[in-house]
């Protein structure tokens, strides 16, 4: 299965073996090797994913699903939203 992950203007296609259950946490961690700088912004000093991450699956905040344990399916779009203020 294939999932699209977007962070700011970075976009990645993440491939996972068909039939393997994949959740949001799994998808985010799979970025660690491919984009270590990006991944570093998502974790605390102990390497855990920050609970404050703003993650959306198909436009809906994972808070309204099962958080980082939200299961993904083929074609899902995961957005990690960087916030910045500006005038």
């Amino acid at each position: 299965m294939r999932v699209k992950l977007a962070y700011g203007r970075e976009q990645l296609w993440l491939d996972f073996p068909d039939g393997t259950p994949v959740d949001v946490q799994h998808a985010l961690q799979s970025v660690r090797d491919r984009r270590p700088d990006t991944y570093a912004r998502w974790v605390d000093k102990d390497g855990r994913l920050r609970s404050s991450l703003n993650v959306f699956v198909n436009g809906e905040h994972i808070r309204y699903r099962r958080g980082l344990e939200t299961e993904l399916k083929d074609g899902d779009e995961v957005y990690v939203i960087p916030l910045v203020a500006g005038g």
Binding site: G8, R9, F56, I81, P82, L83, V84
Partner: peptide, 22 residues
């Protein structure tokens, strides 16, 4: 935020912020 600001300025976040609730 250098990359997004350098590429787009703050207009770069409008879509995501509109959908996120920001």
């Amino acid at each position: 935020f250098f990359d997004i600001l350098h590429t787009y300025g703050t207009c770069g976040i409008t879509h995501d912020s509109a959908l996120s609730g920001d």
